[in-house]
Amino acid sequence: MRILYDGQIYSWQAAGGINRYFANLIGRLPHDFYPSLTNCASRDVNFPNHPNLNIYFYQRFNFRPGRISLQVEKFYFRIISTWHKFDLVHPTYYESITGQGFQKFRYPVVLTVHDMIHELFSSQMDPTKACAETKKKAITAAQAIICISENTKQDLLKYYPIPEERITIIPHASEIDISLSYGDDSVPAQPYFLYVGSRASYKNFDRLLQAFANVVATFPDLQLCVVGSSFTKEEIRSIADLKLDSHLQYYSFLSDRHLAKLYRCSIAFVYPSLYEGFGIPPLEAMSCGTPVIASNTSSLPEVVADAGLLFNPLSTDELSDCLRFVLDNPANREQLVQKGFERAREFSWDKTVNQTLDVYRAVAS
């Protein structure tokens, strides 16, 4: 089977959740599959690996004026998508690198919908509604849609009246597990809770800071380890106001081995997000042997089930109680670790790929 992966996401994201998804998907395709990827990003982007992978690369803005270069780029990718023979197209995002709508493809389109953030948090994430409109056109044009959780599917159906039979639920998985966690990478010397990922407003990080400050009052040696982008000015002010300056440890983006060790050595991983399309970090945490404290909303109960502590993300007191519980109850904490291992084993990238192949074959036939 010959599959075209429209590589728009690589123009915006050198690494990240969608990047990892396609790396795992393409990298695990059978050896009698022939994936092609269109791309105009820099060469150091984390591309997928496959023995038959063909990358159609365009060096963006390699001549002036840039406007002409951009038009040539789109024309180049339109020729590839139109005149090369493929069985289907699986875009990496909701718009095409060709600059055209998905209905222009000559082949069936399989589209993965990761979440409904643009629709549910439009005032923060998409105030002009431009992203949601592009997404709507992509969803309408696709012959098959993959949703990464049941919750994402239900949210999709609320906003877009498409036939339910066009949708298949295929969860993500984790490529990080405890086997990676025994290197010599540094971790905080004091006991710490761990937070990993974006801290956009819907991620509810401010409430975590408030709950953590409540707990530090009785556990003064406690640390909160944060992995992700640098703190904003607003976050720095909140940290100072809550007198947490000496209780935070910050790490920038890390290798998988370093991250796995931070997971394993933490008291618990905390995920207070108001909304997730799936939520890979809790799955990573369970795979690395740390308890998960997560919101009881959106897709997170699907991922964590009874293997973690779930709380109302609008209640600072509930979150504080969960933090105290794992500190005060080491036996219960160990039970959560074992349940987490069992839960994490239910997800695998091989399973994800096999289910995706079923969608590919159905569409291509």
Rank of each mutant, 00 (worst) to 15 (best):
3 I>T: 04
13 Q>F: 01
16 G>V: 07
19 N>W: 02
23 A>S: 13
25 L>I: 13
25 L>Y: 01
26 I>F: 00
29 L>V: 08
33 F>E: 04
34 Y>K: 05
35 P>V: 10
46 N>M: 00
61 F>G: 03
61 F>A: 05
66 G>Q: 04
68 I>L: 15
74 K>D: 08
79 I>C: 12
80 I>M: 13
83 W>C: 10
90 H>I: 06
94 Y>E: 02
97 I>D: 02
106 R>F: 12
111 L>R: 04
114 H>I: 00
122 S>P: 06
128 T>I: 05
133 E>Y: 00
141 A>R: 05
143 Q>A: 07
143 Q>C: 08
144 A>K: 14
146 I>S: 07
147 C>H: 02
147 C>Y: 01
147 C>T: 13
152 T>C: 15
153 K>E: 12
158 K>W: 05
165 E>P: 03
169 I>S: 12
172 H>Q: 11
173 A>L: 07
181 S>Y: 00
187 V>D: 09
200 A>Q: 15
202 Y>M: 11
208 L>A: 01
211 A>K: 02
212 F>H: 07
213 A>K: 09
217 A>W: 00
217 A>N: 00
222 L>M: 13
223 Q>G: 05
224 L>I: 10
229 S>N: 12
230 S>C: 09
233 K>A: 10
234 E>D: 15
236 I>C: 07
239 I>H: 04
243 K>Y: 02
244 L>R: 01
248 L>F: 02
251 Y>T: 11
258 H>W: 09
263 Y>M: 05
265 C>Q: 15
268 A>F: 01
270 V>R: 01
274 L>Y: 10
282 P>L: 06
284 E>F: 05
285 A>H: 09
290 T>W: 06
298 S>A: 15
303 V>H: 04
307 A>P: 14
313 P>T: 14
317 D>G: 08
317 D>A: 13
319 L>H: 00
321 D>P: 03
323 L>T: 00
327 L>H: 02
329 N>A: 02
332 N>T: 10
334 E>T: 12
335 Q>K: 14
338 Q>N: 15
339 K>R: 15
343 R>L: 10
344 A>M: 14
351 K>A: 15
355 Q>P: 02
355 Q>G: 01
355 Q>N: 10
360 Y>D: 06
365 S>F: 06
